[in-house]
Amino acid sequence: MDKILELKNINKIYGTTVKTQVLFDINLSFKEQSFSSIIGQSGSGKSTLLNIIGTLDKPTSGEVYIAGKRTDGMTNNQLAALRNETIGFIFQFHYLLPEFTAFENVLMPYLIKFGRPSREIVARANELLDLIGLEKVKNNLSVNMSGGQQQRTAIARSLIMNPKLVLADEPTGNLDSETTEIIYDTLKDINKRFKTTFIVITHDRKIAEKTDRIVEIKDGRINLDLTR
């Protein structure tokens, strides 16, 4: 299988006067359709790594390839288009737009690209909302939903453009264990159905053990890389 993502000699240093190196010579690649997790203590650099993968942050040195394209030299507009079409994000704090309904939030990445929704995309949004069990609350403003519902909306949103890669940063970090269970089952189900590559950050080993591959980051270096 092809590599969807490849990192070569990634270094990340914060600050200009007082320099703090967060990542040291990271070399990593992920295969298409895989479901991997990145684990590590808080402050280990795992979130920074995910942000670099997601092109939200830039490495101080090193190369990032997404679907074969090098991203660390792209312009802001190229990166925006790449994120829009190729990458789906799920964040710990869901980050829905509170001014819009769940349904509109799910459609948002498509609207950013095309302006108005097509009949097909509306059908797809409804299908995704059904899939994650939100058909009843889809017209609620996102502030009128529970944490689990909001997180599931964010999952549906990350999938609307049928991205090759979904990046999830502690997607169940502030949810109860039962909801966590449901969400991971949903993600795994989607992984199989849509052949979407997932990279999930978590600090919870129990969750990580459910994934196909575990990468542990410790003090900015890869400490462990385990494939089942």
Binding site: G54, N77, A80, E99, I112
Partner: peptide, 16 residues
């Protein structure tokens, strides 16, 4: 700013 940040993560261009 939170909304703008998330929109940018979703690929909204700076001009938009």
């Amino acid at each position: 700013s939170k909304q703008i940040g998330i929109l940018k993560a979703m690929g909204i261009k700076n001009s938009q």
